[in-house]
Write a protein that binds this DNA or RNA. Sequence first.
RNA 1: UGGGGAGUGGCCAAAUUGGCAAGGCUCCUGACUCUGGAUCAGGUAAUUGAAGGUUCGAAUCCUUCCUCCCCAGCCA
Length: 564
Amino acid sequence: MSDAEPRPSTDFIRSIVNEDIRTGKGDGRVHTRFPPEPNGYLHIGHAKSICINFGIARDYGGKCNLRFDDTNPVKEEQEYIDSIIEDVRWLGFDWEDRLFYASDYFGTLYEYAVKLIEKGKAFVCDQTPDEVRECRGTLTEPGRNSPYRDRSVEENIDLFERMRAGEFPNGARTLRAKIDMASPNLNMRDPVMYRILHASHPRTGDKWCIYPTYDFTHGQSDSIEGITHSICTMEFEDHRPLYDWHLDALGIYHPRQIEFARLNLTYTLMSKRRLHQLVKDGHVTGWDDPRMLTLCGMRRRGYTPEAIRNFCDRIGVAKADSVVDFSFLEHCLREDLNRRAWRMMAVLRPLKVVLTNYPEEKTEELDAVNNPEDEAMGTRKVPFSRVLYIEREDFMEDPPKKFYRLAPGREVRLRYAYFIICDEVVKDANEEIVELRCTYDPATRGGDAPDGRKVKATLHWVSAEHALDAEVRLYDHLFTKENPDEAPKGQDFTANLNPDSLEVLSGCKLEPSLSGAKSGDLYQFERLGYFCVDSKDSTPAQPVFNRTVTLKDAWAKAQAIERK
RNA sequence: UGGGGAGUGGCCAAAUUGGCAAGGCUCCUGACUCUGGAUCAGGUAAUUGAAGGUUCGAAUCCUUCCUCCCCAGCCA
């Protein structure tokens, strides 16, 4: 094995896992978890986290739990729980019987809290939110102790029990960890462990009126589940000392928290707050709008789980802030679609072509390849007749040098059909081109000339008589700027919304094989891009297709550069 | 001006721990082609944030500095 493959480099998290296994930490066990808060829909950034957590479990023969971090009933809803379960499953991951909720542990967490009170490591504080803020200090100044910090264990226990019993209104008291108000890490300045929230919880209903905070919940939940590596994003790095403090104070099993940089993508926004805003303010049609980088939006757009997973596996895992080019996501998408999608012909902006030397009543069935990348996908028949549609942009009356499609007097090939020559351009009163009159060469049936002559272009087409009508939705980036947050003074990201992010085309002409198209089928409309049936709005009578992504298009690119 | 992180071609990102700067995306050529797709071949692009220092040798070690990100929710 002299020319061994260079071993794929391991990211820093896997290096840590390797080291832990080598040193026998945790008996060589690997157990991760994906811990979403059910307060919104999952997006491509979550996919990265999902792929890391489930991927590491898979690679090391370990396990990965799905755990909802549902400690804030005022923001969380069953709708989100349902969508998250659906999306993680769709992405292709399996948590077997390990679907958990932090709320499953509310009882245990309460006991843990009592334990810390008994150890003198927690106290009930009567300060108002404003007073807490007041005493917290600033980035450069230490905080001051709460006047309630030195209550007796008995009084703390009594008050905490009464908090639980519902004796006090929201915000009246909190349970706080007794750590260090002078800590340079603000998270360590006696952080709140429990707050009073008279709110109904999607899972526990009205059983509780006090709820543990993230900091008092996450590590203990990890501990309870026997998590070995608790992987989260960088903004929690400051919380790690607190994560560790709770676990040590409690003296329970202590997982290790590891932080990585969250995903950013050009032309897209990832924060849930702003995703909410886009939906709420009607800039998109919903969480599953195909322009959204939510998993449900991407699914509706035609992204495959395979493409998303491959993308996540290839972008790498590191701690430095980064912004991945959107074109890389598209690259991964096309790579998958190219080898799986059925090739079809569809004309989006039809231009009528009449073959003047083709018999009026005649129809032929021509053979077309379903996928040149995969012979096993076979061939199909495509009907051909005297009147056809071609793409408007495939004809130019007065073409520039680099344009080598159809033009007056020029010969091109109709894919899988015949060579045709354009003899005449028919215009209406407004000088609009409404029809092309062409002649075909019967000897070129199937697309090859027996005399060996070549044509520069091959066009897609659809027989008018046999065509299916459809609506096609073309999508572009939701934002015009690589960084949507880069807005003019006084304006926010909505100033960068792309007015052309959606273009709806009606009266598109599809080849008849598409009549059986159903949601989830992957298609390439030849020379145009990849398309899918819209899962919401399409009906057999009125089909609606979404453009998932265009094909790479050297001609379009050259034109775009020329226009600049 | 406290604390915590991070800086490697335009964008991600490796570099077996001091040994002669991978790979992918983008971009540009060319070949091939019944998709201006795919594929194949090649190319442009990095004094590794900066300056000093140690060393035969530094992206890796030491000093100083610069820049960016996160933290003052009873959100996660």
